[in-house]
Nucleic acid binder design. Structure first.
Lengths: 182, 182
DNA sequence: ATCTAACGGAACACTTATGTATCGTTAAAT
DNA sequence: ATTTAACGATACATAAGTGTTCCGTTAGAT
């Protein structure tokens, strides 16, 4: 039942439901699990959401001996591929309603964002060691630019599924090469 | 009354309210305007939101004879300065609930996003003419990277107010100069 | 001064969600 | 085979919002 409910929440949120407007009645109807059982398992909607967040942990990829561009591409692909679109939507919903669910947002930052952020900066630092990235580049800024570009492209609906990979590569190339003449 | 209601909606959304969860009862209480009058003016919440969107039109800056970096900086500043944070939150809410308010989202794309996007690409094209930006750079991609980086920094709460300007400049510099050695 | 349009207050029926409680059933463990 | 824990169905009181209606009041235009 546990995973059934969590997946249903991901689907509903992915389908446009808001964390605050999503009701247990709806979840109960969608899953076929009685509202009663849900109340027995979770004392509140927040606690249910908390378990949903735990269910979307990504396993971060190890750094390869490939180029820095390739490593960062793999990281961005991990951040949100077309495969696990529902997870991305959930995260989007959490950020959008951070003020309504502060504890949930904090949990999200600690369990999801921070590890990914750490891995991202590790990949950047590796790129500096191999001289593929200049030493004076701000790691935080670079990571933020890359991640936000990808997540924005994910939420803007004019870019769908298969374009994701090429878009990520082009973003990486743009940021690596810069736009001014050399 | 018109502007009072619209401003109240902006404030409420800015305070964390969701478009779907925000109630006319709440708006009525907050403004002191009777729920009755609101119903007389707008037939539905969607139509009210539509007028709210119309109220957040930005007047786009003219291109100056300054550098491309400076022009783009002014554009990004227009997109969302710390001053008009409530507008940014409203746009964030519209995007987050695009599936629940498709008409509103479309209106937002046409009236807000498209003109800004057009002006942004104009600034980029100007930069190409002055040889500050390489001719082979994808205008759409560059605009998307810049805008998404700024809007992401706006929604992530670890960057507040006065940092906005310097962050925008640093993002522009990063993208212009690139991160790989020259 | 009077007319009129716009407003506020209150009430209405209806819908949806919350949280709790009771009771019967089912399935798994021993 | 019997116990037991988990589940489903139903009902309940409570709360909040929707959309509409009726009525009294008020401010501005003429």
């Amino acid at each position: 039942m546990y995973t059934v409910i969590c997946d249903a929440v991901l689907d509903l949120v992915s389908g446009g439901a808001t964390l605050s407007s999503l009701s247990l009645v709806r979840i109960s109807r969608d899953t076929g699990i009685s509202r009663n059982s849900i109340y027995r398992r979770w004392k509140s909607k927040e606690q249910l959401y908390s378990d949903v967040v735990k269910s979307i942990e990504r396993q971060l990829p190890d750094l390869t001996e490939l180029s820095a561009r390739e490593n960062l591409f793999v990281m961005m692909k991990t951040f949100d591929g077309a495969v696990e679109r529902s997870k991305g939507r959930m995260e989007q919903a959490i950020v959008a309603e951070a003020q309504n669910f502060p504890d949930l947002h904090e949990q999200y930052l600690i369990e999801i964002v921070a590890p990914f952020d750490h891995a991202m900066k590790l990949a950047i630092r590796r790129g500096k060691e191999t001289r593929e990235i200049r030493a004076d580049v701000d790691e935080n800024l670079l990571a933020e630019v890359l991640v936000s570009s990808v997540s924005a492209g994910m939420s803007s609906n004019h870019r769908e599924g298969q374009d994701f990979e090429s878009a990520s590569r082009r973003i990486i190339d743009l940021v690596f090469d810069g736009v001014s003449p050399k």
